[in-house]
Amino acid sequence: MGASKQLSNDLKTKIVQHYGLEEGHKKLSQRFKLSVSTVRNIVRKWKTTGTVLVKARSGRPSKILERQRRRMVRTVKTSPQTTSKDRQHHLAADGVTVHCSTIQHTLHKEKLYGRVMRNKPFLHTRHKVLRNANAHLDKPASFWNKVLWTDETKIELFGHNKGRYARRQKNTAFQEKHLLPTIQWGFHHAVGLCGQCHYWESCSS
């Protein structure tokens, strides 16, 4: 369907003038041979803005509709680790084809930026695990010479830890949904950082 014909400003002004003479929408539509809805929209715009002129706009209209934008922002706030590719696929399902950079610019306007996820802070000093680690921190070399480390295996419990991003607003880095889970086990048996567990088999003489 082609674009609708733009009415002249003179015609719009005449419609508003006759409306001021207490002529109804139906009578005006018959006088100027326009639909009632067109006359109603012209009068509504004049009442709202005080003019019938079409204001100039910068740039072309956005491909992402307002409803789709609100849904995208709501989804990203609920699931911060969702990527621009994910949002691109969801928009494509709605028949909207946009570049990932367009999605990023839209989220930036909502103060949602991709940031590297921070590690969840470790346990407080009053907890047993950290006390145990501190107790062995200054052990002499003779103590560790009695420990035999036979194997080491790295297991990432929460997916790969490199390049994990979350979209968040400023000053929300330490909210639970924006943090990477961390695990810290007993000092002799296992130590886990950022979801990584290092299991050590050991024996002492």
Rank of each mutant, 00 (worst) to 15 (best):
H189F: 15
E66V: 10
I64W: 01
T172P: 03
K55Q: 13
R164L: 13
L179N: 03
S205N: 12
W185K: 13
E66M: 05
S8L: 14
R168T: 13
F122C: 06
K139T: 08
H99D: 05
R126L: 14
E22K: 07
E152L: 07
L11P: 03
L28Y: 03
G195E: 04
K77N: 15
K120Q: 14
H124Y: 08
T13K: 05
I183F: 11
H124I: 03
R67W: 10
W200F: 12
R60L: 07
L28S: 03
K45L: 10
T78V: 09
Y199E: 09
R167Q: 02
H198A: 08
H136M: 09
W149S: 08
A135C: 07
E23N: 12
L130Y: 11
H90A: 11
W149I: 10
G195I: 07
H18I: 08
L65R: 15
G159L: 02
A166G: 11
W144R: 03
R87T: 00
P121W: 12
C203I: 13
S84M: 06
K154R: 10
G24Q: 01
V73F: 03
K109Y: 05
G114S: 11
A92G: 03
H198L: 13
I183R: 05
I64A: 00
C197W: 05
V36S: 02
T48A: 10
K139D: 11
D138I: 15
M72K: 04
I42N: 02
R167G: 04
K177D: 08
C100T: 09
N134F: 13
